[in-house]
Design a binder for these strands. Sequence first.
DNA 1: CGTTTGTGGATGC
DNA 2: GCATCCACAAACG
Length: 130
Amino acid sequence: MKKNSDPLREKIACHPQVTAFRLKVYGALLEVPKGYVTTYGRLARRVGCGSAQAVGNALRANPFAPEVPCHRVVAADLSIGGFCGRRAGDEIARKIALLTAEGVPLDAAGRLRDARRVWSFGPRQKQGSE
DNA sequence: CGTTTGTGGATGC
DNA sequence: GCATCCACAAACG
């Protein structure tokens, strides 16, 4: 049993557009610590899905950004991905700024400089042993 | 590096 | 129920 006493999750569950699948995606996203990012594919496996596009589909419609750290999600090739329903534009610039502010080293084009900043679900990596 | 195929959920009809 | 779209990914050229 999971403790869902967070008001944020309450708001998510209250949203009619949010399905069980999206709930899992957002929930897994909240597991990503600050200063780290994850990929759509990794999130997909986390929620028991074989399609990263399904995850991206959920994040695209994420009405809780940036309360839900959808900006911590990048593509498998370490590209910036999308934000606020857009894959390019001023929203992307904000996404880069957010990640940079959290300590995630990004290239000028939004590409992740250190692949080690990608969070891996499952094995609890030691944070601070860097 | 560009193109194509696979995949899975959401939405429209 | 089928067709189409999508903030992806991996394979192929």
